[in-house]
């Protein structure tokens, strides 16, 4: 669990522990490099998250990790910052995944805050990561969402106002990201984390 000063690492660790992982929190690159998987929590403004992540020296680790197809899980802004341009503060992301981060339009309540339905994307109805998750509600709190360039990387979607079918679970190579907070989504969230951990072994 990369502790780079971006919010609620404690809850994220607890969520992964509840899902059967042996999670540890670290702000040290060498310590993180010894893990089997990396988790990027993320709460707050993407520019400050990116600044903190860069200052932590973790970007090189993440780049290397993703390049070698080792497992990475990004949560909310921790997922968004892996993409390219973000509309939040006109920010340039890490660009490790092709895609962009967009904002909801103000035709609805923003932030999108609360428990919303996770729907399997076309072609992912039987995706093991969504077992016991698709059709259930998870906890969202965000004004922006990542859109991969390749729609095939969208595993699940959610609807909010004009943004029907915005991506809420993405997977590209060894990277999985969720726009909702699995660590704050009760048993359903733990199930998704268990599904992902099971897929690694």
């Amino acid at each position: 669990m990369l502790d780079y000063g971006a919010g609620n690492v404690r809850s994220a660790k607890r969520g992964f522990d509840a899902a059967g992982a042996d999670a540890f929190v670290t702000d040290d690159v060498a310590t993180a490099a010894a893990a089997d998987v990396l988790v990027i929590p993320g709460v707050g403004h993407i520019a400050s998250c990116l600044a903190n992540l860069r200052a932590s020296g973790m970007v090189g680790l993440l780049t290397d990790w993703i390049g070698r197809e080792r497992p990475v899980f990004g949560i909310c802004v921790g997922m968004q910052l892996l993409y390219g341009h973000s509309a939040e503060g006109d920010t340039t992301g890490l660009g490790l995944l092709p895609g962009a981060v967009r904002r909801f339009t103000d035709d609805v309540t923003v932030p999108h805050m609360g428990w919303d339905v996770v729907t399997a994307a076309p072609g992912h109805r039987d995706d093991p990561i969504l077992a016991g998750v698709a059709g259930e509600r998870c906890y969202f709190v965000h004004s922006y969402f990542a859109v991969p360039d390749d729609p095939a990387h969208v595993v699940a979607t959610c609807d909010h106002g004009a943004a029907t079918g915005f991506p809420c679970v993405v997977r590209e190579g060894s990277v999985v990201g969720t726009q909702f907070h699995p660590e704050k989504s009760g048993e359903v969230g733990h199930r998704l984390l268990r599904n992902w951990l099971a897929s690694l072994s």
Partner: peptide, 8 residues
Amino acid sequence: AASVGSQS
């Protein structure tokens, strides 16, 4: 909001 994000 600038420090911890509006959502919090």
